[in-house]
Amino acid sequence: MSRILTTYFGELEYADSAVFQFPYGLPGFEKERAFLFVQQPQTEPLMFLQSLGEPGLCFILLPILVADANYKIVLDAEDLAALHFPPDRQPVIGEDILCAAIVHAGDSEQAGPTANLLAPVVVNLKERIGIQVIRADTAYSHRHPIIADKEMAPCS
């Protein structure tokens, strides 16, 4: 077992086999190649992508189908190769791959919490390799609101 002292979770103990490799890092954080997925009962359905190289770097993730139940993604040959998948078959979300959106929790400049559906994190669950796929189409927003407006309506 290894340990890391993180900014948000304190000390985390993990098996080396639980580490996910991101061979290209994530855009903006290209040097960070090793991450842990952190899940805690009190923050379900959110997950966290904690960098092992930078204890203060952690992303909030939301499973893509929670953000949008109808979300569809087609990985191109380059993405499939990066994830060590054969080029002739699309992996299935939840079976072969974990697909999750990076969440912006919101701040004073940006009204509500949003999820980046333009560029989901996609992970080969068996090989434990991940990339951030940047879609070439404009079907999904990089600031998809994850809290519906009607939430604000008073209960009657």
Binding site: I60, G106, A119, Q132, H142
Partner: peptide, 14 residues
């Protein structure tokens, strides 16, 4: 866009 969004999203963890 993704690069900029990643940087601000990483800062939003509170």
């Amino acid at each position: 866009i993704t690069r900029e969004e990643n940087i601000t999203a990483a800062r939003s963890l509170d």
